[in-house]
């Protein structure tokens, strides 16, 4: 016959301690995850703000030049490659493709935004 093992007081106490530590570790992990996510979201938000600002600047310069990429480069920097304007600012890469009227802003390999940009008809009477 096997002898029945009775739980001792110290054994119960250890289990209780382990449970407390487990709950705390779980809560700490959740909190850390939330902090990291908040930090990442804040960074992404700041980066997106910068991207919007730079894209708006490039779009305005492009429209003001009447669609002349060389003129945009002369005033704001960047280079024209295969009929596409490529500009690097604040760690972001801006690409303006006049054929498709597309303006994209990317950070590394991540595409942050894509806009449609067009030169106003007759440049609204303003000679570029």
């Amino acid at each position: 016959m096997q002898e029945r093992i009775r739980p001792t007081k110290s054994g119960l106490f250890s289990i209780e301690l382990l449970l407390c530590v487990g709950v705390f570790v779980f809560c700490a992990a959740v909190c850390t995850g939330i902090f990291v996510r908040a930090e990442m979201m804040s960074r992404q938000s700041a980066e997106l703000n910068t991207a919007v600002n730079e894209a708006r600047n490039l779009a305005e310069a492009y429209q003001a030049s009447g669609g002349d990429l060389a003129r945009v480069c002369a005033s704001g920097g960047g280079s024209v490659e295969d009929g596409e304007l490529v500009l690097t600012r604040e760690g972001l890469t801006l690409r303006l493709t006049p054929d498709t009227g597309t303006l994209t802003v990317s950070s590394g390999e991540w595409l942050l935004l894509r806009w449609r940009v067009a030169v106003p008809p007759d440049n609204w009477g303003v000679s570029p």
């Binding site: 600047n57 305005e60 429209q63 003001a64 005033s75 704001g76 106003p120 440049n123 303003v126 570029p128």
Partner: peptide, 23 residues
């Protein structure tokens, strides 16, 4: 020309530029 370039320095000393196309 038709482009108005505004350069601002904020309270932290960071410079930002806003290009505005004056139609």
């Amino acid at each position: 020309g038709a482009l108005l370039r505004l350069r601002v320095t904020d309270a932290d000393g960071v410079r930002e530029t806003a290009d505005v196309y004056v139609r």
